[in-house]
């Protein structure tokens, strides 16, 4: 039997679609772990990125911390946490949060920091002060990058949330770990396909979200600059002056 038949057989088996071990409840568990981790990681990473980026301080600290924790092997960290804290939701949750923080922190920080200084000066010129500059000028302009950070983090979290199964929890990783242990490879591939589909769905969600919330002014201008410079015609700023 070829792998495709094996997997389509697994997907067609009604027993795999119902109950606590069925695909819908596994997906629900998987999303639950991922959302919780993303939410907590965003609450930590984005405020830090906003404030430090606005002050333009701590480049070395932010980048060093982000890159060092990015280098932590998730499975090793998870095992360590389990030894310290016992099994339960906390260890995989922390491991996923640690995974999600670096992309969000770095992208928010760089996004805010690299907002055109002329724009910030103009805002200051019309009387805005620190926090309002951050909220009404820098954050909206940096939003595409902030969302990109969240998107990268979410994709990583969705695929890594499979490790929850390594310490006795549910989620789509259950199919992968159980299938490997029991040599039931239809389960392994089926679980992996579901994780991949979920990651693609996440990607689409963020693309849609970006289109909905990013200010039209930001997208239109950056698109113009992009195409104009990309075609090698003229730099975006000057093009605006000539039109």
């Amino acid at each position: 039997m070829n792998p495709f038949e094996l997997v389509s057989g697994w997907f067609q088996d009604p027993a795999n679609w119902s109950g606590a071990t069925g695909i819908p409840s596994r997906i629900a568990e998987h999303l639950q772990y991922s959302l919780l981790a993303m939410l907590i990681a965003a609450l930590i990473a984005i405020p830090f990125g906003l404030v430090l980026g606005h002050l333009n301080r701590g480049e070395i600290v932010v980048l060093t911390i982000a890159n060092s924790i990015r280098a932590l092997p998730t499975l090793g960290l998870l095992t360590l946490l389990v030894i310290l804290a016992g099994i339960g939701l906390l260890p995989p949750l922390i491991a996923l949060i640690v995974l999600a923080i670096p992309p969000m922190l770095v992208n928010t920080f760089e996004g805010i920091r690299n907002v055109d200084r002329f724009t910030v000066d103009a805002a200051r010129g019309i009387g805005l002060r620190g926090p309002s500059i951050l909220w009404s000028v820098e954050a909206p302009v940096a939003l595409p990058l902030i969302l990109l950070g969240a998107r990268l983090a979410a994709i990583q979290v969705i695929s890594a949330a499979t490790i929850a199964a390594y310490v006795g929890l549910g989620g789509l990783g259950r199919y992968i770990f159980d299938g490997l242990g029991r040599r039931d490879f239809s389960q392994v591939i089926g679980g992996s396909v579901l994780v991949a589909l979920l990651a693609i769905a996440t990607e689409l969600f963020f693309v849609t979200l970006g289109a909905a919330v990013v200010s039209k002014g930001v997208t239109r201008r950056s698109k113009k600059i992009f195409t104009a410079t990309g075609l090698g015609i003229i730099p975006g700023v000057r093009r605006k002056a000539t039109t």
């Binding site: 095992t79 389990v82 030894i83 804290a85 016992g86 099994i87 390594y166 310490v167 006795g168």
Partner: peptide, 10 residues
């Protein structure tokens, strides 16, 4: 280590 930790922590 995971089984051992789970035993120890109850």
């Amino acid at each position: 280590p995971i089984t051992i930790s789970a035993l120890d922590k109850g």
